[in-house]
């Protein structure tokens, strides 16, 4: 039988998640330029890592499960890479769009 996470470990993870939430919210009022987005996304990634490792126990899952998760990330990367290699290399950025008021 697989070992289950202890209540203190789950509670500590919850505390860490709330501290990270506080940090990301507080940082929004500091003008860090592009650093704001970078910090926000890094903190979000750290929170998701905590959720995936401690709550979802992915690192203790069987290899087939870990491969499935890795494949999901890999295909998300392919999706993003191919889309951005199209959209970001076009001469103009603005997407074809009409404001809701004009429709």
């Amino acid at each position: 039988m697989r070992k289950v996470a202890s209540i203190p470990a789950l509670a500590a993870t919850w505390c860490a998640l709330l501290v990270l939430l506080g940090l990301t919210t507080a940082s929004a009022w500091l003008n860090l330029g592009p650093g704001n987005l970078l910090l926000n996304l890094s903190i979000a990634a750290a929170k998701v890592a905590l959720i995936v490792v401690v709550f979802m126990r992915l690192t203790r899952a069987r290899i087939a499960v870990r491969l499935t998760a890795a494949a999901a990330l890999f295909f998300l990367f392919i999706l993003a890479f191919l889309s951005f290699s199209d959209f970001l290399t076009r001469p103009s950025h603005p997407a074809p769009w009409r404001t809701p008021g004009s429709i």
């Binding site: 919210t25 979000a44 998701v48």
Partner: peptide, 26 residues
Amino acid sequence: GALYWHFVDAIWVFLYPLIYLVGRYG
């Protein structure tokens, strides 16, 4: 069921800064 719940939580973790925290200092 819990794994599904955690996934929905993780999606929100990325949505939160992208929706609420952009340009707050401006």
